[in-house]
């Protein structure tokens, strides 16, 4: 059991005033038995009313708008949260595929989370699956081996992929950040008919240091009959215990994006994200990331008057 103090600031700046900004935020802790929100304070430019609701995957989401002209929008979340999971994961090592197949068949969400998306490099994926050699292995072993394979074969490099990178692009680069590691792992598990979902959240530091600290992080949950959703982090090659804080789950990044929005106005925008995670009364780890947004060129001002943005890549 640990208590974490998390500070997450998302800041959009525009070189000219924009208006009619409408936004969706997925920065509330995921409601589940293994984490307890002690306090969350949300401060947004203009102090708008935030309308919250629960989405299809069970995530709490919020919508708000800022209609008047503005050159800056800041979304600041201060969170105090307690994780209740045990420091060691208790996954079963004796559950096999036939048991899973029997459960998936009539469960809509498991079915859709076990359905692979089309990947062009099918042969590359099957090569990886051959290395994992899932036949006769128990499900937990398959999941652990998949995680290990990604950790071993892919290099963690910031800045070479983007928020929109496809699995094919990541396969080609064999590198990326946590979002990319998670997307590849999801596809591999799904191709082996194991339901898997994307998790967006924060990772809390330990003595050894972990990748993805000081930013929003992403990992994977895989379904094991009799146990449920087991979290596993291919970026750090660890099972998820009490040092990960979950914000949202979904099919992929798109359904978990912490902040996305639209605005009107011919302006260039820049985004910076600051995340600090600390033990209550303990050491704090922080990072400020300037995010290169896809849609803006350096010299041209976009002609379109509606622009959309999907926030920061998860690292």
């Amino acid at each position: 059991m640990s208590i974490f103090r998390i500070h997450h600031i998302t800041k959009y700046e525009y070189d000219r005033p924009v208006k009619e900004s409408v936004n969706n935020i997925t920065i509330y802790p995921y409601q589940s038995a293994d984490q307890e929100t002690l306090q969350q304070e949300l401060v947004i430019t203009g102090n708008p009313d935030v309308f919250t609701y629960t989405d299809y995957w069970g995530n709490k989401e919020g919508t708000f708008n800022l209609l008047t002209p503005h050159r800056e929008m800041v979304i600041e979340s201060k969170l105090l949260i307690r994780t209740l999971a045990l420091p060691d994961i208790q996954v079963p090592w004796d559950v096999f595929m036939p048991e899973l197949d029997a459960v998936i068949g009539s469960d809509l969400q498991l079915l859709e989370l076990a359905r692979a998306s089309p990947v062009k490099a099918v042969s590359v994926m099957y090569d990886y699956i051959n290395q994992i050699a899932p036949a006769n292995k128990n499900i937990t072993q398959i999941i652990a081996d998949t995680c290990d394979l990604i950790y071993t074969h892919f290099t963690y490099i910031k800045g070479i992929t983007t928020i929109e990178s496809t699995v094919d692009e990541i396969l080609e680069k064999k590198a990326g950040v946590c979002q990319d590691f998670a997307h590849v792992m999801l596809e591999l598990l799904r191709m082996m008919n194991i339901p898997a979902r994307y998790v967006s959240g924060y990772i809390c530091p330990n003595k050894n240091g972990m990748r993805g600290e000081g930013a929003t992080h992403a990992w994977v949950e895989a379904y094991i009959p009799g146990y449920g959703w087991a979290g596993i982090d291919p970026t750090n090659n660890v099972w998820v215990t009490n040092t990960h804080v979950r914000l949202a789950v979904g099919r992929n990044f798109t359904s978990c994006s912490p902040v996305k929005g639209t605005f009107k106005g011919p302006a260039r925008q820049s985004l910076s994200v600051y995340v600090s995670v600390g033990y209550e009364d303990g050491e704090t780890f922080e990072e400020l990331n300037s995010v290169q947004l896809q849609k803006q060129g350096e010299n041209e001002v976009p002609e379109i008057i509606i622009d959309t943005f999907a926030g920061q890549q998860q690292q």
Partner: peptide
Amino acid sequence: DPLVFRPDSALGVPGLMSAYRK
């Protein structure tokens, strides 16, 4: 609603789904 569905759509109204949901 470009906020919820196709982000490239200029035919819709950003935020429409939240009004519908409410």
